[in-house]
């Protein structure tokens, strides 16, 4: 066996040893064909071509695997984006509700006797916090089934408002 043919055979055997399970048959087939190639140079070129073909196959499979994985990650990112948009929309809804409720309270203050905050009774303060909180909770319940992320956004706003009220109570009292 000439040196060229030895190189070709060794190269193919090395590739066969390291080939993936799905390429093993093809690598074996290419190696076996070497025995039927008359010219040594042709055998070496056959081996180089075979290695290239197997390498391309493996890299194509790897690319497909990576693309598949990236596709999953992209789907996860899209899901996350949708949820974030939902939560932000929920906060927007809560803000709109709060504006409506406080607007109604502001209008009501012209007709009710607690227009002066210094003299505002505890009941009035409770209305100021209870009404928006109640509206947030109703909105969250209404949205929970079909627009869960929006409902979460509304609930977050309710928690922020409640926390703000609690801090206000703790620092200023009623």
């Amino acid at each position: 066996m000439s040196a060229l043919r030895k190189i070709a055979t060794k190269l193919m055997r090395a590739v066969l040893r390291h080939s993936a399970a799905e390429s093993y048959d093809w690598a074996s087939a290419m190696l076996r064909e070497l025995d039927f190639i008359e010219s040594d140079w042709a055998a070496l070129l056959w081996a180089f071509g075979s290695v290239t073909a197997l390498f391309r196959r493996s890299s194509r499979r790897l690319c497909a695997l990576l693309m598949n994985r990236l596709g999953h990650e992209e789907g996860w990112m899209n899901d996350l984006r949708k949820r974030a948009v939902g939560i932000v929309s929920g906060v927007g809804i809560a803000a709109a509700l709060a504006v409506c409720v406080f607007g109604l309270l502001f209008l009501a203050s012209h007709f009710l006797p607690f227009e002066d905050p210094e003299r505002m009774p505890r009941l009035a303060w409770l209305i100021v916090i209870t009404l928006p909180e109640a509206s947030f909770i109703f909105a969250a319940i209404a949205l929970w089934r079909k627009r869960r992320s929006m409902a979460v956004g509304v609930l977050l706003s309710a928690i922020v408002l409640a926390t703000h009220f609690a801090i206000h109570l703790a620092t200023h009292g009623l």
Binding site: M30, F36, W46, G49, S50, A53
Partner: peptide, 20 residues
């Protein structure tokens, strides 16, 4: 494989990806 290669004139690096 080698016979197909001779008939078509395709090198192994071209022929085998097609067969695969």
């Amino acid at each position: 494989g080698y016979d197909i290669s001779r008939n078509t004139g395709l090198k192994s690096g071209t022929l085998y990806p097609i067969l695969m």
